[in-house]
Design a protein around this nucleic acid. Structure first.
Lengths: 124, 124
DNA sequence: CTTGACTCTGACAGTAATGTCATAGTTTAT
DNA sequence: ATAAACTATGACATTACTGTCAGAGTCAAG
């Protein structure tokens, strides 16, 4: 599969796909003519990359993660890596939950003020 | 409180603090000599900023959030009619709801990843 | 008064991810 | 065979955040 199709099916620009490859998040064979020949599984990998980038991870961190989870066909699955990743996610989850609570309180307060103002306007 | 102490107590560089102020995420008074005079509450704000930056949000997005949560976001624009104030609150409410949606999506994705990882670890 | 620790601003550098453009080669369709 | 659509690489631009340095003012302590 050539790079244009990957781009179309993932919504990620060709530029970014080449960048990911350069950063060794993706790998590809080359055809006779020099064009990249990418496996279909790359599509899922790209989506994973996008998700991680959206979480604020760098390509460097993502590379480690992908290597951890993919490069374990050997009887050395490097459990440390996945456990560390799990801990990282759980930390992030807590941060997110905290901020959701903050926003939720804010939401309530705003609604209260709006209701109050609307009462004032009705009775004015 | 001067900027050095804020830096020390938050672990954020003076350079970054000034940058946050420039981007209007923080505000400060000035002393006679031109030094910044920062409130203690800035410490919490800085930690919030760091958290959001770590989640991949930009200072522009963070600014909106912080302005929402500030008790008196505007420098006393006194003669505001109540309709305008109501509209302002409703705008802010929508911003808050948008941010909650963003965080909620993050939350879901994180939970999925955590569940997936835990399955992997259990069967490993 | 001098020294050292702060602070100020402004400028430049650097990294990370992405866009864009130039130039050139390849494939496909008419 | 020629235009349209892809692809390749490389260079430069851009946005955002951060580091660092230069030049200068402030201030407390010796």
């Amino acid at each position: 599969m050539r790079i244009g199709e990957i781009s179309r099916r993932t919504g990620v620009s060709i530029r970014s796909l080449r960048y990911y490859e350069q950063k060794r998040l993706l790998c590809s064979r080359r055809l006779e003519n020099g064009y990249r020949d990418l496996d279909e599984e790359v599509i899922g990998q790209v989506q994973t990359i996008q998700m991680y980038l959206g979480l604020g991870l760098t390509t460097e961190q993502i590379k480690e993660i992908l290597q951890c989870s993919a490069d374990s066909p050997l009887p050395q699955p490097l459990p440390v890596c996945e456990e560390a990743l799990l801990a990282l996610y759980q930390d992030k989850l807590q941060e997110v939950e905290h901020q959701m609570a903050v926003l939720s309180a804010l939401h309530t307060r705003l609604e209260e003020r709006i209701a109050c103002l609307q009462r004032q306007l009705r009775t004015a």
